[in-house]
């Protein structure tokens, strides 16, 4: 399509080239070409106007959305989030207690936040079916030992470029093994940690 050809001045000079060299001294052609000089002067003025507008818009209080916009966005998000998966923690004649995958993940992420050099990302939790039957039975009364479903936790993470990855992952695993019984009241089960990315520090 002709429209996408590189736009040029009458003298054949690429406009893009004039723009990208606007802060450099004039070359031999530009020193004598009036078309180039005129275009350059105009673009220079545009460049300054562009920077001024960018700065002015960035700091213009009037150029921000009203707070109601965020409220409306978050209302929709909140209303639609409840579809997340539920995990049965305990069940007896008095009723059931379940936990959302979301709530479980937040305990895992809070634990990860205490380990420097690693950021918790997506967290996926499954129940191992082999042992899930035991969670439906009434626990013996008075027993305070940790019980519940056998969790299989898949946690993805990003790490800082300069850390010892095996040691950091091991530290994170230990933190999660402690945090789940403390925060939720069941055993941590199987924890699979994947390092998928490096983050910039």
């Amino acid at each position: 399509m002709a429209l996408d050809d590189e736009p040029r001045l009458g003298c054949g000079r690429s406009i893009d080239r004039i723009w990208t060299t606007i802060d450099q001294p004039l070359n031999a052609h530009e020193q004598t070409c009036r078309q180039c000089q005129a275009a350059r002067a105009q673009l220079k003025r545009l460049n300054e106007a562009t920077q001024a507008l960018r700065e002015a818009d960035l700091h213009d209080e009037a150029l921000t959305p009203r707070s109601g916009v965020k409220t409306a966005i978050m209302d929709v998000a909140r209303a639609e989030i409840r579809r997340s998966k539920r995990i049965l923690l305990a069940s007896n004649g008095n009723g059931t207690t379940e936990i959302s995958e979301q709530a479980l993940s937040s305990v895992i992420r809070a634990a990860a936040a205490e380990v420097p050099g690693i950021h918790a990302r997506r967290c996926h939790i499954e129940i191992s079916s082999a042992t899930s039957d035991s969670s439906v039975d009434d626990p013996p009364s008075g027993q305070s030992g940790v019980i519940g479903p056998h969790l299989v936790i898949g946690l993805r993470s990003a790490v800082a470029p300069d850390i010892n990855i095996p040691r950091t992952v091991q530290l994170l695993r230990q933190r999660i093994i402690t945090a789940i019984p403390a925060g939720i009241g069941i055993s941590a089960g199987t924890i699979n940690i994947t390092v998928e990315d490096l983050y910039d520090v």
Partner: peptide, 28 residues
């Protein structure tokens, strides 16, 4: 579990029979 017990107890005081009290923990 504490919520379950307390809710059962307090509803029981009204004279109603308490069936299941189910709890979903949606956020921690």
């Amino acid at each position: 579990e504490t919520v379950q017990q307390r809710v059962r107890g307090n509803i029981g005081h009204t004279g109603l029979t308490v069936g299941k009290v189910d709890i979903s923990i949606l956020a921690i």
